[in-house]
């Protein structure tokens, strides 16, 4: 049984955050760093509120790109993992290449993608697919590989076909790893969306960032940075809810006595 987090467990990091913001405000008040370089928390808050409607319209575009990219990334990752798991030779041939491809900084691909696919949504979505599919595919593959071989033997003894083994055993068995991979993919993809928007386009949080940067509006800059992390956090929180719903057996508690049986 996991210990339930107590109130103090939540209060301590909250207090630390509050102190941090206070120190920041003090630094600005005392003029240690000039105000035009480091806006005070109050000014950032004010910018956040005044710019909120505009930022939201940009955030919507970024979210759409992220959702489309993630969706395609999941499908691609799923197919890759399923094919590699079914055909050992394919896995041996492609897995190293796949890992190697991850040493290419995806951000460096963004300008190339824009050259190829111009300034619309396409290059952004493609970049997100490229960054998100890898953690998903690897998560699923590890999940498939981690299934107890005896469990597969049992299914075979019950004359289950390959597809049945996949549906009843492998896929649900790999869900925990799939969701860990997806969590990484989500944080990657928000970053990828913003970075690819920096390089060109007419809307999106990245485009907004470049605009406020050009006008030296540091307060708006900070506001949009906070919004980007808030968006990531919200997506992760949503994912946590979905994963709990998808894996009820993980949260059902465990057996704790009652029948008088020896273990």
């Amino acid at each position: 049984m996991k210990r339930r987090p107590s109130i103090t467990d939540k209060l301590i990091p909250l207090a630390a955050l509050l102190i941090l913001i206070l120190v920041w405000e003090l630094i600005c008040l005392l003029g240690i760093v000039p105000g035009y370089m480091l806006p005070s928390p109050v000014r950032v808050g004010a910018a956040f509120i005044s710019e909120f409607p505009l930022m939201m319209s940009h955030a919507w575009v970024t979210l759409c790109e992220t959702a489309a990219g993630l969706f395609l990334g999941i499908i691609l990752g799923f197919i890759t993992a399923a094919v590699m798991d079914t055909f050992g030779t394919v896995k041996r041939a492609l897995y190293p290449i796949l890992v190697l491809s991850q040493t290419i900084p995806t951000v460096a691909l963004a300008p190339l993608l824009i050259l190829w696919f111009s300034y619309g949504m396409a290059p952004k979505v493609i970049l997100i697919v490229l960054t998100s599919f890898f953690p998903i595919a690897v998560g699923l593959m590890d999940g498939f590989a981690g299934i107890d071989p005896d469990q597969i033997n049992l299914m075979r003894a019950m004359k289950a076909g390959k597809l049945q083994i996949f549906i009843h055993l492998k896929f649900p068995g790999a869900l925990p790893e799939f969701f860990s991979g997806l969590k990484i993919a989500v944080s990657y993809s928000v970053v990828s969306a913003v970075v690819s928007e920096w390089l060109g386009g007419t809307s999106g949080l990245g485009v907004y960032m470049i605009r406020v940067k050009k006008s030296y509006s540091y307060d708006k800059m900070f506001a949009v940075i906070i919004l980007v992390s808030a968006v990531s956090l919200m997506l992760i929180a949503l994912l946590n809810i979905i994963s709990r719903k998808a894996m009820p057996w993980k949260h059902c508690g465990s057996y704790n006595g009652g029948e008088g049986e020896s273990k």
């Binding site: 009820p248 057996w249 508690g253 057996y255 029948e259 049986e261 020896s262 273990k263």
Partner: peptide, 11 residues
């Protein structure tokens, strides 16, 4: 309608 994790070894 329980999950296996909720059963004892004998169950």
């Amino acid at each position: 309608y329980k999950y296996p994790a909720q059963l004892s070894g004998g169950m």
